[in-house]
């Protein structure tokens, strides 16, 4: 579901993520994502079709309108980037606890 591409020299962790739930990233999953992202001090960005938003911004996430099956690129930079990435990946695997 995600392709690992760790570029440890520049400290950036990149992941390809696919939206797996039926509805896509609507308000509730967006809030879950932002809550996780906000707990970490690293910078978290999310990109879809060339549009890059701050992963700690709920408005940004909603703006992406990431429907089911859409592909996102996660980019985390900072000292706790690895944990943050792991937790976000898990959230996508769990399909945001939805169908």
């Amino acid at each position: 579901m995600s392709a690992a591409k760790d570029n440890t020299s520049s400290g950036v962790i990149t992941r390809e993520l696919v939206v797996g739930n039926k509805v896509g990233i609507h308000a509730r999953p967006a809030a879950m994502f932002v809550k996780i992202a906000s707990r970490y001090s690293c910078d978290i960005f999310l990109e879809k079709d060339g549009e890059k938003i701050n992963g700690k911004s709920i408005m940004g996430l909603l703006m992406l309108a990431a429907g089911p099956g859409s592909k996102l690129t996660l980019e985390a930079t900072g000292k706790d980037a690895a944990q943050a990435t792991a937790e976000i990946e898990d959230l996508f695997h769990r399909k945001f606890d939805e169908e």
Binding site: V23, H26, G67
Partner: peptide
């Protein structure tokens, strides 16, 4: 406002072809 925005978002995502 949150619910309204979410409804607009869900409508947009439902209208878009899968995987986009």
């Amino acid at each position: 406002p949150a619910r309204e925005l979410n409804e607009r978002l869900m409508a947009q995502m439902a209208a878009a072809p899968r995987g986009l």
